[in-house]
């Protein structure tokens, strides 16, 4: 079953255009949503949840259109945008006592479990928490109503490596039974290499790829060689960089075949992002 089906979301701002964004996620999996800063990750997530008004497109969650079923669907969705910078002067327990009123399936036991797990003191005020603790509190609130679909915007930013790793472990725990699904955006791609099943990659408001992580990494190769090699290959590559030893570049695996003897490696997600950004830079220069 598809937990999320996004079709053709468009949103125009003065200097940014979210262009026909479409992708979907099967139930029980973790999808990482990657892209550089300003690529449209947050706008897309907000568009999915009707926080912003989309100019076009449809969003189906659990097979139901969000327009018209928003309130009922949101009971089953956990949603976190950035850290908890709400009500800095209020105690955690006051805020949670309010949040739980909104959810018919609030799970007090789970809530207390997360408080303990994240070492959060409910007697503290939000402003007394560090950035990392605020994110953990926001997560605690988001995860304590038995949501089946969890959408998190940059949940790992501001966390130290140990806390990040713990969080990713928690994500995998959550999907272990197969009834929960997670979509989270990040620009720390090493997070995804550990736990993501699917990757959706957005660049400059457009979806470049949305597929399994294995297939995505399999689809590209990082190649390097001499400058002579480059001359023949340049047209086929996503983009390339010259250095004093020759060049390195990104190419689709299927296009690599004719060039025997070229040193090719599996790229990291970072490599893919970097060379797509480079491509855009090149195009921009070309257009001038």
């Amino acid at each position: 079953m598809k937990v999320l089906n996004v079709q053709g979301i468009c949103k125009r701002y003065d200097k940014f255009y979210l262009d026909d964004v479409s992708f979907s996620l099967d139930e029980g999996y973790i999808m990482g949503f990657i892209g550089s800063n300003g690529a449209g990750k947050t706008t897309t997530l907000k568009g999915i949840l009707n926080v912003i008004h989309k100019d076009a497109g449809t969003v189906e969650i659990f097979g139901k259109n969000i327009d018209g079923n928003e309130i009922a669907l949101k009971q089953d969705i956990a949603f976190m945008m950035g850290s908890s910078d709400y009500y800095p002067g209020r105690k955690l327990k006051t805020i949670s006592s309010i949040v739980q009123r909104f959810y018919s399936n609030w799970n007090q036991e789970a809530y207390e479990g997360y408080l303990k797990r994240f070492k959060l003191d409910p007697e503290k005020k939000v402003k007394e928490l560090s950035q990392g603790m605020r994110i953990k509190f926001a997560l605690t609130l988001a995860l304590s109503h038995n949501a089946r679909f969890i959408i998190l915007d940059e949940p790992t930013s501001g966390l130290d490596p140990v806390a990040r790793d713990n969080l990713l472990e928690l994500f995998q725990e959550l999907v272990e039974k197969g009834d929960k699904s997670i979509l989270f955006s990040t620009h720390i791609t090493s997070d995804l290499e550990k736990c993501a099943d699917y990757i959706t990659y957005i660049n400059n408001g457009r979806i470049i790829e949305s597929t399994t992580k294995d297939d995505l990494l399999d689809k590209y190769r990082l190649v390097n060689g001499s400058e002579d090699d480059l001359n023949g290959m340049k047209e086929d590559m996503v983009s390339s960089k010259k250095n004093s030893f020759g060049f390195t570049g990104l190419i689709e695996t299927v296009k690599l075949k004719p060039y025997k003897g070229i040193n090719a490696e599996v790229p990291t997600l970072d490599d893919i992002m970097i060379y797509y950004a480079k491509k855009e830079e090149d195009n921009a220069q070309f257009n001038i």
Binding site: N50, V51, E70, I71, A72, K74, Q75, I77, F79, M80, M81, D85, Y86, Y87, P88, G89, V99, F102, Y103
Partner: peptide, 16 residues
């Protein structure tokens, strides 16, 4: 504004 009140409300399962 300073408490980001609308940002909080929009995350709850309520309509605009």
């Amino acid at each position: 504004n300073s408490q980001n009140d609308f940002g909080f409300a929009i995350m709850m399962p309520v309509s605009k």
